Simulated scan of single mutants.
Amino acid sequence: MTSPGTIGASTGLVGLLGDPVHHSLSPAMHNAALQAMGLDWVFLALPTPADQLGSVTQGLEAIGCRGLNVTIPHKQTVAGLCRELSPLAQRVGAVNVLVPHAEGGWFGTNTDVEGFYSPLQEAESDWSERRALVLGCGGSARAVVAGLTELGCTRIQIAGRRQTVLEDVMAACGSWSPQLETLLWSDDEILNDALEHSDVVVNTTPVGMASPSKPEAAEASPLSTHQIDRLKPGSWMVDIIYTPRPTRLLQLAAAQGCQTLDGLEMLVRQGAAALRLWSGRQDVPVEIMREAALAQLTPQA
């Protein structure tokens, strides 16, 4: 075994498949955790075009890769390449973690769900009789709906701009989340009512996410100030975006008296859950992963 922080002939490989992946915080947080755990592994971001996903997963299996994270745009497609799926991955219809299968191939599961609900569960232990509103109905929304269902929310509403997409989400999630209802974002009266009565609102849209090429995007919010005024003080506002920190949405919600949570904690928690699956160990240093991710987001002096 090589010394911690070095790479040798015996070093094991774990990594992230996606396109693009150059912006990912996963290598920093995972490699910090691997070093703290004394594991002779290295985590790499592996850019993977959609038409090469099958070849890449087969090749990585052949060389003994210890495990993989999967991100946009492959979370749904990779499910069809797995030898076996966890019940949760089957329900959500998305895979973000691959674990080597004992009989060859990959076991696919989903830790995004745990990454979403675990910090909320730690903050408040009882979510029964709570109402939730999910903004957006893309791939991330399904994991959020699953997490809210796991928490025990009594009523979950999901707001989208296209009726056909909402129908697809209901068809996919309605059977395992009987609390789920849909509403059109353009129906102001129904949306305002949902905002007024929700105990937790979750933004799964990309509105408000900044990047080096689009810094002005940080000024946007998926909810107007008028809509923010409808929120109950003391309720939760969760934004799965973490650039910038805080997003404009979370700033407005905090000023309204809401409790806030951003997507960095979801990223850290899903990564920690994945590392437990790959390593078979429970001593994953979540705080070290969080600090490493934060260091990547913080401009260096």
Rank of each mutant, 00 (worst) to 15 (best):
V95W: 01
V95I: 08
V97M: 03
L98V: 10
L98C: 11
V99Y: 07
P100H: 07
E103L: 11
G104C: 13
G105R: 07
W106V: 10
F107C: 05
T109P: 02
N110I: 04
T111H: 10
T111R: 04
E114S: 11
E114C: 09
L120W: 08
L120H: 09
E124P: 07
E124M: 15
E124A: 15
E124H: 14
E124I: 10
S125K: 13
S128F: 04
E129N: 11
R130H: 10
L133E: 01
V134C: 03
L135T: 05
G139H: 04
S140T: 15
A146K: 01
G147P: 00
L148W: 03
T149C: 02
L151G: 04
C153G: 05
C153I: 06
C153H: 05
T154K: 13
R155T: 05
R155C: 10
I158H: 04
I158Y: 03
G160F: 03
G160Y: 03
R162N: 08
R162W: 03
R162E: 12
Q163T: 14
V165W: 00
V169H: 01
W176Y: 12
W176N: 08
S177V: 03
Q179V: 10
T182L: 14
L183M: 13
W185D: 09
S186D: 15
I190K: 10
I190P: 02
I190F: 07
N192W: 06
H197M: 08
S198K: 03
V200D: 08
V200H: 04
V201R: 01
T204S: 11
V207E: 08
G208A: 12
A210H: 10
S211T: 13
P212N: 11
K214M: 10
K214S: 13
P215C: 13
E216W: 12
E216D: 15
E216S: 15
A217P: 00
A220R: 08
A220N: 07
S221W: 00
S221Q: 04
L223P: 00
H226Y: 01
I228E: 02
D229W: 06
D229L: 08
R230V: 11
R230K: 11
R230G: 05
R230W: 01
R230A: 12
L231T: 09
L231Y: 03
K232V: 08
